[in-house]
Each structure stands twice: as C-alpha cells, then as structure tokens.
C-alpha cells in the first residue's frame, strides 16, 4: 500500500486518500470561446503516462485538502508532493 505525504499532515496510508487523476488541467477561463476539440481535450483527454506523472490527490479521510504529487507510474515511487497552486517541480527523468 502506497505511503502518501500530504503536504499538510505528513506521511499517511493510501487508504486515507482519493486519487484525482492527472494534475495541472486548468478549467478554461472562457468555456464559450472553446472549440469542441479544445473543450473535449479539457474534459476527456488525459496523458495516461507511463513514467513520470503529475497527479492530484485529496486527503479524504484527513484534512480534505487537495494537493499534487509526482509519481513514477512504473515503480509507483513518489518523487514530490506539493500544494495546489504551487508550480510543478521539475524531477529527474521527466520526459514531458
């Protein structure tokens, strides 16, 4: 079972968290001006990365805060945790 470090609470078991999928997908500021393709990208298209993945988690059974993590989807190793709104850290091996 993964250990996840909530930026607010520290190391906790995976079972306390809810996964929120790929991170850094901003809601378009003016949806009405979006083409179907652009809007479709926003609601559907995800990278499905093999390797370094920037993703969202929420400490559901704890402080209920959303935050971001960088995880290697092959090894399941977490490389970084950071608060929502903070810039994504650059990690070694990030091919994106």
């Amino acid at each position: 079972m993964l250990t996840i470090k909530c930026p607010w609470c520290g190391d906790r078991d995976l079972t306390e968290f809810a996964a929120g999928g790929e991170g850094h997908i901003a809601r378009p500021l003016e949806p009405a001006t979006q083409s179907d393709a652009e809007w479709g990208d926003y609601i559907y298209t995800r990278k499905n990365t093999k390797g370094i993945h920037y993703e969202r988690w929420m400490h559901a059974q704890g402080c209920r805060r959303w935050f971001n993590a960088v995880r290697d989807t092959v090894s399941d190793e977490f490389l970084a945790f950071y608060k929502t709104g903070e810039p994504a850290p650059k990690v070694e091996g990030d091919g994106s």
């Binding site: 809810a18 929120g20 969202r56 929420m58 559901a60 209920r64 805060r65 959303w66 929502t84 709104g85």
Partner: peptide, 13 residues
C-alpha cells in the same frame, strides 16, 4: 460536499 470542496480549492481558491 466533495464537489464543492474540489472546485473551491483547485479552481476558485
């Protein structure tokens, strides 16, 4: 409740 929290925290902080 989670829906409200998510939007308030991640898009409209």
């Amino acid at each position: 409740m989670g829906w409200l929290e998510e939007w308030l925290q991640t898009e409209w902080p």
